[in-house]
Nucleic acid binder design. Sequence first.
DNA 1: CTGCATCCGCCTCGATACTG
DNA 2: CAGTATCGAGGCGGATGCAG
Lengths: 210, 210
Amino acid sequence: MKKRSYNQACSLATALDLIGERWTWLILRGLLTGPKRYKDLLDQLPGIGTNLLATRMKDLVWLGIAEKSGNGRQAAYQLTAIGEQLRPISHALINWGRNFPDHAGADAQSRPQWDMLAIEAMFRPERAGGISVVMEFVLSGFVFHLAIRNQQCRAVIGPAVSPDVRITSDSATLIAIGNRETTVQSAEEKIHLKIDGDRNAFSLLFDLFE
Amino acid sequence: MKKRSYNQACSLATALDLIGERWTWLILRGLLTGPKRYKDLLDQLPGIGTNLLATRMKDLVWLGIAEKSGNGRQAAYQLTAIGEQLRPISHALINWGRNFPDHAGADAQSRPQWDMLAIEAMFRPERAGGISVVMEFVLSGFVFHLAIRNQQCRAVIGPAVSPDVRITSDSATLIAIGNRETTVQSAEEKIHLKIDGDRNAFSLLFDLFE
DNA sequence: CTGCATCCGCCTCGATACTG
DNA sequence: CAGTATCGAGGCGGATGCAG
């Protein structure tokens, strides 16, 4: 059973042979928000065949892009250093995909972790010189936080130890504010947005992100 | 006849719906080295079905990623502004693919235009401050040139108007020199490398590129 | 219940032949 | 040269089974 390959002496073709198949990038999207168990990956990949996920994971581990820690019911997959190198590329692809905002239909699936990675992608390091801040988000009940330091931004699942600000909202509201379709004040009045802590830290959200 | 889609409200999934299918990135690779006719694209895509290339091109044009100029046998495809935004992403994928130098088998296909794009990908703008130089390459008979200015590098098919240096060689030799597996002097003695013009400009090749 | 493996129908792909 | 038509092969999607 030989794997299909472009069979070209080209690094782009090599990359596509390894991570260009259907679902692979979306598996990586799952791993880019932290280690995941098989079931957690499945939950973020609606429509994938369970066998396909299993073979993809075997390939990714074999290639040294992901690795498996623990086994049995505690087994979890995480990115290796080489897999982690795909993070900026995924950011770029996400930002490119925003050229087509109307692509997703009304019946499209959604997961808060996808928004989390999208926020990380929108970070603009060149605007973050000298800024150090931790923002905690509660988007439709899903909790994560952004740690911004040294012109780097990393999104992590779960609450922050000591956040400068906690933002309770949903992704649609934040997008609407970002697009100037609504105001912070209006969103707060409609209880679509709640800001706890340093409001200046909250306003950084619109300075440091696209 | 509906197209297969991940159907997710996620910009990464959107991007993959549009350019994540088999062959699409390699079609873009062809267009990233300049406008191409149907036949020229085919030549760079060994193994693709002609029907598949036709449908892919129709999709890319429909999406506004590529556009068709002229028609009949003079028709040519080129990238739109949105398609051009994929250039840095292709560079990043190429550089990531170089983590797996042994992937391509001995029977792998190769085309000089792939090397041309790979060289463009290896350019390090942060090392090119204040440098302005034009290098012409003749790799195994294929002619292109690099124009470096304002910390940008663009590879263009064909000879340069007034190159600072002309480098006649082949990609294997340049890679070997870059990896310190051979020296410039040795390559010149074996007539695997010929340098016409400013030798200092040639040495920039190893300063400005990875 | 999680973490897969097996099986099967279907859709996409790959190759060739053919047309304007 | 620039595609279209056709058809066999193989990867994918969904359901099911099963071991730890």
